[in-house]
Design a protein around this nucleic acid. Structure first.
Lengths: 338, 338
DNA sequence: TTTCATTTTGAGAACGTTCCCAACCTCTGC
DNA sequence: GCAGAGGTTGGGAACGTTCTCAAAATGAAA
């Protein structure tokens, strides 16, 4: 593999001059530049990533930690981020943190060792120790969080969908459509962003003057995996199907849960939407191909990814302020509501 | 960030000795090692990826080119590859090639510049020029292909599912179950591995003494995207539903097509499996949650990824022989066949 | 022609490692 | 006590860049 010295020799100049045309730093006579360009082409020269990195400290690589690859939610988000990243000359390295409880820390260390330029966290661990650790990290390298809010926003940059208000509004919509027995299904892991949706549900009930009824709420612990979400939805479906006094509408904290629920309700001969309306949250492409297609509160998933990348690139370029972006969720009406 | 020299100073030794304990190369007295370990810990030392790379030429990074992230097929494959890679101290960089027709080449160049240790190609471009390019690449850096076969196998390493024989057998199964009018749906892009499945279908017909009937075959161009596959399936569903003389069973070259087809058949009041049996190919996790669950020819997706990673790591470690691995597809009976 | 400013170029240090080679210790056996 | 062997350590070159600084070339003005 040709080095900058080979190119310099080929063009009959010094490596400094080659470096100058490479980085457009400092003036170079037109004909010299031409000779160097020719030499680079001839030798198929491409500068060593290492050698550049060791000098500049830049890798032009952004890492993105996600809890699960095969969750289409993250792959869509990733695409948004990558789109912006590539346009700015960065590559995105995805890392799956769900392998073990400590993998978030392990990955972070590995990424720092690789000197990535920035890290996008799509993770939910929120015990005080972890938050302290993250705060520490974000003092040293550019960091953006997704789908996560913090009690002290000024310390962090994040990008998120407003789960509270969009769920609140969805409840109001169902109320307007005549539903009076509105239930909820949720995974009760300590994920702030998902809890906020639940809070929005409660607020929605309150605003509509509807009573809180424990029977219509199905909640359970759930790992952050596609199949586990679906299973949780199925269990909720069975549960609701077996009730004497069923809810007439149910919101789920996540689309996959809603899909599992619909599947199970159908299997138990409970008609959707005739007997129960179901509303999800996320707007995965899956929702559309399901039978019936799922009504959901849509997150601008790709946009979330794009924004995260934008923020992190701006941070890499030296912008010191943390920014917090909150997107509106949009109710998308499909076949599971009437 | 602490360097090896800081550690050496802290421990009162030379950088050579630190390097020795770092890489377990050469003997070091136990107490010296202890002092160095302590110093490394104290200074939170982590060796610079660049500096190591510039000396050793190794990045401990494997790249994987996929045509589409959000296709769960690839994310599952990726997980298999990453699993093996991580265990061997490698990270996997995914790259989406579907952005433009030339992105495969562009990415390859970018990856070479990054000095990745190896590339896993999940791509289908098979014009002679591209094949020549790939052959050239694979002479210079370790390369493995997935879901792709070559006419001259000795030049390449690849990992693939045997689409020909598994489809053949699926046809035989349908025949045994009494089906006599077996159709096929396919995307007709020049993808060898998908064409092989079709060839297997034809061979299956022949072996069962069934006639080839053009009417029962729906084929169309299709981009390599989840939603396009589904759309193609839907169109096929409409087509078959509208036929006077319908097939009694249909195989699809890809699960997503099969799913779209089932969806559309149901919408046209054609019952699955009562009126038409449907068989897919891949075994995505989606198949199971669909209503009815999809019968399919299962690829060992994760295993494919694992094997690809294994092969490439062995190549990185100096193994010069190309290996070709062909997995059997397994017919998985679910709700769309009776 | 000389002087001075400006443009263009090159020499060489630095980045943080690895690795070769030589030097230094510490034994053992005589 | 000494030679020699073997274990242990350090010095310094090398990897391929970037970047500072100074030198050389050019050109304009006096």
């Amino acid at each position: 593999m040709a080095t900058i010295i080979d190119v310099a020799r080929e063009a009959g100049v010094s490596k400094s001059t080659v470096s100058r045309v490479l980085n457009r730093t400092g003036p170079v006579k037109a004909e010299t530049k031409a000779a160097i360009d020719a030499a680079m082409k001839k030798l198929e020269y491409s500068p060593s990533y290492f050698a550049q990195g060791i000098r500049t400290g830049r890798t032009h690589t952004i890492a993105m930690l996600v809890p699960e690859y095969s969750n289409i939610f993250y792959s869509e988000m990733f695409q948004g981020a990558e789109d912006v990243a590539l346009k700015n000359g960065y590559m995105v390295l995805v890392c799956n943190t769900e392998r073990s409880s400590t993998s978030e820390l392990e990955y972070t260390r590995a990424l720092i060792r690789r000197r990535v330029d920035g890290i996008i966290y799509n993770t939910y661990e929120n015990n005080p120790k972890m938050v302290e650790f993250l705060k520490d990290i974000s003092r040293n390298i550019p960091v953006v969080f997704m789908n996560r809010v913090f009690s002290d926003p000024k310390d962090f940059s994040y990008v998120c969908t407003d789960g509270f208000n969009s769920t609140r509004k969805a409840v109001q919509y169902l109320y307007q459509r005549g539903k009076r027995k509105i239930g909820y299904i949720r995974n009760v892991k300590q994920i702030d962003v998902v809890n906020e949706r639940y809070e929005g549900y409660l607020m929605g009930l309150k605003e509509c003057g509807l009573p809180y009824n424990e029977k219509w709420i199905h909640q359970e612990e759930c790992r952050n995996h596609t199949s586990d979400y679906i299973k949780l939805g199925c269990m909720a479906g069975s549960y609701f199907a077996g009730l004497d006094d069923r809810p007439d509408a149910v919101l789920a904290s996540v689309d996959l849960i809603a899909l599992g629920c619909v599947k199970q309700l159908k299997e138990c001969q409970v008609q959707v939407p005739r007997d129960i309306n179901v509303v999800g949250f996320d707007n995965l492409f899956l929702d559309e191909i399901y039978e019936p297609a799922l009504t959901t509160i849509g997150q601008p998933i790709r946009e979330l990814g794009r924004h995260a990348a934008q923020i992190i690139i701006s941070k890499i370029n030296g912008n010191p302020v943390n920014s917090q972006v909150l997107f509106d969720g949009k109710l998308i009406l499909r076949g599971t509501t009437d």
